[in-house]
Amino acid sequence: MKHKPIIGLDDAFGSRAKALRSMQGKMLDLFEDAGYEEVIPPMLERPDALKSGAGRFLADQTVVFSDPAGAGTLAIRSDMTPQIARIAATRLQAEAVLKLSYSGTVMLARPDVRGGSRQQWQTGVECLGIAGAAGDIEVMHLAARCMMAAGFVKSVLQVGHIGLLKALVAGCDAPLETWTALLARRSPDDLREVIAVESISEDRADALLALAKGKGDEQWIADSVGKFGADFDIAANELLDLVHEVGDRVEGDVSVYADAAVMPRFLYHSGILFAGFAEGVSQALLYGGRYDAMMKAHGRDMPATGFSCDLWALLDTV
């Protein structure tokens, strides 16, 4: 009987395995040179450790099972950032500032995109203990260097802020997960169906539809200040100031743009968020952002920001 790999999972051998290890080495060397120390979390966690402050979507992407050795219900990690949060909150409490890197396999309950893979080789950094723009700028600068080290040219960092969307949908019945999923799909028709059953003002509905059409650029954000309340204005000004500062510091052929339509991959981000793209590549190469709220959910109230990429995806697109 021939046993085939599970759909969505695959083997790596020969040149592909060598290429992955080579790419992994480049990334870890880059992170080490930038002052980030590698950590190697276990593949399995208690489900609560992966779900604390991480949002419903990540919970739905996590495979859980009953441990035959009697340890109770365990989970296969679907994202390593919650593990870093746990380590920082429970193992490294004495350190006020932590700069940590990681690289390892994660498994999703279902692919991110139709026909995609359920296994990813997640590689990234987490910068904990540095509040506000200073931490965001450091991580975004490193993300730009990551794309260049992988061999991409004319890369782009699209930077958003989850506070913009939260302000636009404040008071709506649909959860934030629904709005982010609709906007990530860039589907105005589906968005209209949800708006139709919500008590939402016409100007906010128009703003959401503009984002679904990809019209949330820097000018749109600036023009929207003063229209949607104080929370929107705070997020918008923070975003615009940060983009200008990052753009002045980033190295190489990397452009930095404000884009209110950038949506988080997982819903643990609580402020600035960003995605990295390259010329000729339709899917994001990396995702990142600030997640202070998740650290608090893990029992340690400290600022945190980071980014990660999937090495398999980088190899398939470079």
Rank of each mutant, 00 (worst) to 15 (best):
H3F: 14
D11K: 05
S15C: 11
R16Q: 13
R16N: 10
R16P: 09
M23I: 09
K26N: 14
M27C: 13
D33L: 10
P42Q: 08
M43H: 10
A49L: 13
G53A: 09
G55Y: 07
G55F: 06
R56T: 10
L58R: 07
G70R: 01
T73P: 04
L74V: 02
A75I: 01
P82C: 06
A85V: 08
A89R: 08
L92T: 10
A94Y: 13
V97R: 04
L100V: 08
S101F: 04
T105E: 15
L108S: 03
R110G: 04
P111G: 00
V113D: 01
R118I: 01
E126H: 09
G132P: 06
L142M: 03
R145N: 12
M148P: 09
V153G: 14
V156C: 11
V156Q: 08
V159N: 01
G160H: 05
I162R: 14
K166A: 13
A167S: 13
L168K: 11
G171S: 07
P175R: 04
L176A: 13
T178V: 13
D189V: 13
D189Y: 09
V194I: 10
V194S: 07
I195T: 10
D203M: 15
A205C: 15
D206Q: 15
L208T: 05
L208R: 12
K213Q: 12
G214E: 00
K215A: 08
D217E: 02
F228T: 10
G229D: 14
A235D: 12
E238N: 13
L239W: 06
D241F: 09
L242K: 02
H244M: 12
V246F: 03
G247T: 02
D248T: 10
V250Q: 06
V254N: 07
V256A: 00
A261F: 01
M263W: 03
R265S: 10
G271W: 13
F277Y: 09
A278I: 01
S282V: 01
A284K: 00
L286E: 05
G288A: 01
R290W: 10
A293P: 14
M294R: 15
M294N: 14
H298N: 15
D310A: 00
V318H: 08
V318G: 07
